[in-house]
């Protein structure tokens, strides 16, 4: 045995933590190398040449070690690959953007300079995406090594998982139209109801939740927006989610976001007497601002993305 063989065996066994397993692998490799060298020598090669050839034939010691010990030579194998891919797509399509929007709102509400807001939001989105991808991959790589094929397929497929066929071009779904219209009617009803039927009664008079001053201009604007949404819903039903439908969805959704956000931040949305009555201080309202705005932003962003995604999917057919 020469130093070259010793180095080879060391390279192949040094990461084997179990003592018995390492000794066994060491002995087996030495037997194989010695026999192979002898074989080459009896074919007429010199000692150094024979050893060189034998080790070259064995190949990368880490690979040999993995083959002997039946360790996977990949990070995530076919058993877990599609589960990994599915989780990655879902998480990367949602988490970074939601956290990014919340971060954006918080920074805007704390009056950071615009460069800081933009740079901070981008770095938050990138950081969340990188972190999510890393931890998901690490989790699956560990699962690959601690589970055996005998444990069965963790992500067992059944025919119920088959996706629906893409909706035929042309009309949208009637169920979507009905759901939209019912929702809009409920919202309109709530606006009226909170004015005349509020559950908070003071001195025999019902106390509105929204600031009564809004009835001059902004509540009529809300009704106008609701009417526009209804028209939009009918349009989507008649033509499907086209690009123009998705684009028109943009100003309507943004108008909702801007209107509600602005009224809330400037303290004009809720009735001060009502807040007083239910024991909410202005301080509590102010502190809740970033969170309320964040939730609002997520809802609006979802609306927009949903519209464009549906238009994109439809366009691909």
């Amino acid at each position: 045995m020469t130093e070259l063989t010793d180095r080879y065996v060391y390279a192949a066994t040094r990461f084997v933590t179990d003592q018995d397993e390492r000794v066994e692998l060491d002995r087996e490799l030495r037997e194989r190398i010695a026999d192979t060298v002898d074989g080459h020598r009896s074919a007429g090669l010199g000692p150094a040449e024979a050893e060189e050839r034998a080790l070259t034939e064995l190949g990368d010691p880490l690979r040999v070690s993995a083959a002997y010990r039946e360790r996977p030579m990949y990070l995530i194998g076919p058993r877990h690959y599609f589960a990994w891919q599915r989780v990655m797509v879902i998480v990367l399509a949602t988490a970074p953007w939601i956290v990014g929007v919340i971060d954006l709102i918080v920074m805007i509400s704390t009056r950071e300079p615009v460069e800081t807001v933009i740079a901070g939001t981008i770095s938050t989105i990138v950081m969340v995406a990188v972190q999510a991808a890393f931890w998901i991959t690490l989790g699956f790589a560990v699962a690959e090594r601690v589970t055996t094929p005998a444990d069965g397929d963790v992500d067992r497929w059944t025919p119920e998982r088959l996706p629906q066929l893409p909706e035929s071009t042309g009309r949208g779904k009637l169920s979507d139209l009905i759901a939209s219209l019912v929702f809009l009617v409920i919202v309109a009803g709530l606006i009226v109801w909170q004015r005349f039927g509020s559950l908070v009664v003071v001195d025999g008079e019902r106390m509105p939740v929204l600031d009564p001053a809004l009835w001059d201009v902004w509540i009529p604007v809300m009704f106008l927006l609701l009417a526009l949404e209804a028209v939009h819903a009918v349009w989507v039903y008649r033509t499907g989610w086209t690009w123009p439908a998705a684009i028109v969805n943009l100003p309507i959704s943004l108008a909702w976001g801007a209107l509600l956000g602005w009224l809330f931040v400037s303290g004009r949305l809720l009735n001060p007497d009502f807040l007083d009555r239910v024991g909410l201080s202005q301080g509590a309202i102010d502190r809740s601002q970033p969170y309320v705005l964040a939730v609002l932003a997520v809802i609006i962003a979802w609306e927009l993305v949903d519209g464009f995604y549906k238009a994109y999917r439809r366009g691909r057919q």
């Binding site: 087996e28 194989r32 034939e57 083959a67």
Partner: peptide, 14 residues
């Protein structure tokens, strides 16, 4: 191939 046979012997033993 030797790289097939040696690991195979181990597997069959296991």
């Amino acid at each position: 191939d030797a790289n097939t046979l040696y690991p195979l012997l181990r597997r069959l033993e296991k």
